[in-house]
Design a protein around this nucleic acid. Sequence first.
DNA 1: ACGGTGTGTTCGATTATAGAACACGCGGAG
DNA 2: CTCCGCGTGTTCTATAATCGAACACACCGT
Lengths: 237, 237
Amino acid sequence: MTPNTGTQASPSQTLSRGIRALEILADAAEPLTIAELADAMGVHRSVAYRILRTLEDHSLLVRDDGGRVQPGPGLAVLARGVARNLQTAALPELTQLANTLAMSAFIAVWDREDCVTLVTVDPRHTGPAVVQHPGSRHPVSAGAPGIAIQSAHSEQDWHRLVPGIPYRPEAAEARRLGFAASHDEVIPGVSSLAVPVRVPGGRPAALAVVYIRAAQDPDEVAAALVAAGKRIEAQLG
Amino acid sequence: MTPNTGTQASPSQTLSRGIRALEILADAAEPLTIAELADAMGVHRSVAYRILRTLEDHSLLVRDDGGRVQPGPGLAVLARGVARNLQTAALPELTQLANTLAMSAFIAVWDREDCVTLVTVDPRHTGPAVVQHPGSRHPVSAGAPGIAIQSAHSEQDWHRLVPGIPYRPEAAEARRLGFAASHDEVIPGVSSLAVPVRVPGGRPAALAVVYIRAAQDPDEVAAALVAAGKRIEAQLG
DNA sequence: ACGGTGTGTTCGATTATAGAACACGCGGAG
DNA sequence: CTCCGCGTGTTCTATAATCGAACACACCGT
């Protein structure tokens, strides 16, 4: 496999535009009119109209009462298969962590220069939970999950895989300790701990908890994280 | 708006094929080779190859070590915006329901002849939880959520909106009671209760709990569901 | 060594697509 | 009441993106 290392520019203009439409819709807080969306895409309105109808046929977007468009349930169906093994293996561990540690726990996967949160579990006590929404992106160079993902690679491998993103010195330390920590990086006042999770056929991921003020000993939390990560990896091995 | 009621066939062949590829991938339990996927799509391999590269550029699919393709993190990012208001409003209520009732709670939205589960919360006690995975589809004619969604419409409106799907008599009863119940419909041995949720600018949805054996009085559970549904609607009103 | 399978690239004929132009409905301003 | 702006939905033709065959290369088991 990988017989040739060549690369050519990505065509498929219509497909690319359709995806851009979905990306714009996902980022938009409110439903958009077709004209607004066409303007945001930089295409003619009739082009956007045809693309949107195809997306609507697949339930990837739905129309408002006023004709405005917003993301549709089909997207949830498509996203169901994202790292399915990892999600099913991690969910019990996440709830266990969240409830025993009284912290929000989540799984994030590496995606180019970002890491994407997949599953989140908040502790059972309703209160000022540190919400980490599924589907949110953060730069891999910020936050404990990113450091943990970097720590799954050596510095040389990292530079070879992702040129342009520096290898944080904290990753080397996390590589030694087995877990990563960050404070006030993504959200001021919020700290997080993370461990790398390696799944055989998939992208590197991280298991993490976020908290405002530590109610537990950080070392104990880290130990619980490491143990949970090992259990997840064992289940997927 | 809606000046003309005409409809024309949906073009955008490439976009449609790309979405079909994602649908096939989401349904597949394991990563597929490009050749397998091209065969499943019924297109030439080079066509599939070009489409897949575009999808990969947007992180909607990722490649295995062996070159096989599987759903990518970008799908989770796109799905983040699906019924965002409803999800954020429902999540606290779901956790509250799951923990006080010791039942799995979830939100489902109506999509043509199916209803799609969006958010699920399992009770805190790890055990034989009745998992209802996000992104799963069920026919709207089966299960309490479907009945609840039907009960949000009168029988005439339902036949006008979705010709071809019968209006279940249970929906009329649910319309009267304010909640719907089903037993052994989707999964044998599993029962569910659901209430309809109406969100101003969105599709009809349902708030539901599933359980194996009722530990609580069903009427009390239904009352809690109704109250939670009203709170969600009030927050979105 | 040899076929079988799979990936990645190139290229000309064909076809889907782009984008302008138009029809229609609505709502506010003069 | 009419005009005008805004928005949706449809039709049409030149054009450009796409299709699909053919090829090169790599790997694996026999």
